[in-house]
Each structure stands twice: as C-alpha cells, then as structure tokens.
Design a protein around this nucleic acid. Structure first.
Length: 154
DNA sequence: GCCAACGTTGGC
DNA sequence: GCCAACGTTGGC
C-alpha cells in the first residue's frame, strides 16, 4: 500500500465537488504529464491512500483523504474532441493517458496549509515542497502521511 | 498579474 | 541529438 498526493484547482474540481459525487467517487481525468501518467498507469494500486490538495486558490492546502478504488485505465476524455483534455495522439487503440478512480474518505478537520507543511521540519523532504515541483500526482511517504494527518488536529 | 521552473516542440 | 522558443503550472 502506497500513499500519494493529487493536486486539483478547486475552481475546476474541489473536495466538495468530490463529496457531492455519487458514492463520493470520481475518475481522475486530465493528467497530461508523462511522469504522472506513469504513476497512474503502473504504480498506483487499489487501496492506496491519496491526499487531496487544493492548488491555485486560498487556502493552498491539503483538505482531505481519499482511497484509490480503481486502478489505472484509459483516460477516455483524451478521445473526446469536445473535451478540453482531448488529445488526438491518444486513441482507444493506442492509449497514451490514464486515470484512476478515487473515493473521498474524509475531509480533514481543518485544512493543512502549505505554510503549515513548510513549517514542519519532518516534512522538509516532501516532494510537494521541492522547488520547481509541478507534478500533479506525486508519491508521499508513510511518515509524511502520518505527520500530515496528525496536523489536522492542531 | 508576475515570473521562475519545468516540459514540450520543432528546426537544424 | 541539441537547444531555443514557447506554453503551462502554480506560488507569490
């Protein structure tokens, strides 16, 4: 079992949008980066834990935990010309992009903000905090996961 | 709105 | 295969 952090802009898709989904479950579409794609296709497994992070908004923060309920399968939005995620280079025959399904486990008692994460010495190696990091799907260590979940109680 | 960092594209 | 130009991400 592994842990991950998924970024989402709440203007596009927020934790409350996920909470409003049927079974609190959605497919994680639109990832168009090869490194993130490889995680989605190859590494992320059913039952893995996911931290849901709000980017490009106030507050910048981890806002909830999710569980992977379906492992990597073709991101069909790449096949739809009307989709903003359309990619003519991907087709059902030759799929380039992948997605997983996640289900909301719980919203955190309070958002664990980027500032709080930065202030935590134990988290200084966290991928999210590394300069220039732009991955929207990234691994989190078990220790980081535990530390972050404890921080919601402060 | 700015801009640093990074990924992708395409000419050579 | 190099690398300049360009587009995107995302914190500030």
């Amino acid at each position: 079992m592994n842990y991950w952090l998924f970024k989402s802009e709440p203007d596009v898709f927020s934790i409350d949008d996920l909470a409003a989904c049927r079974n609190k479950t959605t497919y994680w579409d639109g990832v168009r980066n090869y490194q993130a794609r490889n995680y989605l296709r190859d590494t992320i497994k059913k039952g893995d834990g996911v931290l849901f992070y709000h980017s490009n908004s106030e507050p910048l923060a981890i806002v909830g935990t999710c569980e992977v309920v379906k492992e990597g399968y073709p991101d069909f939005t790449a096949f739809e010309p009307e989709s903003k995620y359309f990619d003519p280079g991907s087709s059902p025959d030759k799929t380039v992009w992948y997605m997983v399904d996640i289900r909301l486990k719980e919203k955190l008692k309070q958002p664990v903000t980027l500032a709080m994460l930065k202030a935590k010495p134990e988290l200084k190696n966290m991928k999210l905090l590394q300069k220039g990091n732009r991955l929207s799907v990234m691994p989190v260590t078990p220790d980081e996961w535990k530390t972050i979940l404890e921080m919601q109680n402060l």
